[in-house]
Write a protein that binds this DNA or RNA. Structure first.
Length: 224
DNA sequence: TCATTAAATTGTT
DNA sequence: AACAATTTAATGA
């Protein structure tokens, strides 16, 4: 099915687009639903669409040559990914798996390229997005060595939120501690303890299968 | 609507 | 990694 203009307007990158650009975006987008645990694409697939999470949660991961699974990033509501593969017309570098039932908006390559070549606002968004990604990547490498498990859990959790999209103070993710542990590269037991401590500090509330964050800003900058 | 059961998730060791 | 405790979801009376 074709995406509605309303759906387009709900995305952060649509704020600076004019009417023609928005209509064009809507026409070039489709919405698909993925069951929990299903693969959106495998490493090496040529998925030629720019993809956004409408509802649900997605993880990017791969399996090392030794057979160990490695998760790189999680993407929540409002997150978009795949611009690198679409721009370069390359196969995907990672597996992408739905952690929950997830509704994805997919923009086909011709539409993406048209926006890329015609919309200044769209380019501004892309530039900012790539920049934030780079920052996150560098931070991940740093934290891998420098930060305690608790801080890693805190930051990985904060990255599941799109700060631009949620102006409110209270946000929640449907994610199990098991899944968060995979994202953070910390054992589930440590993740469990870290969450309990963070709750004591008043940064979040633990619910079953769900975490309600009350202070994203502190989580993002969390250090020991 | 309630009770029973299975499955998922959490908390601990 | 294993275990028990807890919560949810599913089923059927």
């Amino acid at each position: 099915m074709n995406a509605s203009v309303e759906l387009v307007e709900a995305q952060i990158w649509a704020s600076g687009l004019n009417v023609e650009e928005r209509n064009r975006a809507a026409r070039g987008m489709t919405v698909r639903v993925y069951e929990r645990g299903s693969y959106i694409c495998h490493r090496g697939d040529r998925l030629n669409a720019w993809t956004g999470v409408v509802t649900g949660l997605v993880k990017m991961s791969s399996i090392s040559h030794s057979g160990k699974p490695m998760t790189f990033a999680g993407l929540g509501h409002g997150g978009w990914f795949g611009e690198g593969s679409v721009l370069k017309d390359e196969p995907r570098q990672y597996d992408i798996v739905a952690l929950r039932e997830t509704r994805l908006a997919m923009m086909n390559r011709p539409t993406f390229m048209w926006l890329y070549e015609n919309s200044v606002a769209f380019n501004h968004f892309l530039l900012r997005q790539l920049n934030e990604r780079l920052g996150q990547f560098i931070a991940t490498v740093e934290h891998d060595r420098m930060l305690a498990p608790k801080a890693r859990v805190a930051r990985n959790l904060s990255w599941l939120f799109n700060p631009v999209l949620y102006p409110k103070q209270e946000r929640s993710v449907e994610i199990t501690q098991d899944e968060l542990a995979l994202l953070s590269g910390v054992s589930r037991a440590l993740t469990n303890r870290a969450l309990a401590e963070l709750q004591q500090e008043g940064l979040l509330l633990i619910e079953h299968g769900c975490i309600r964050v009350t202070d994203v800003a502190k989580l993002m900058r969390y250090e020991d």
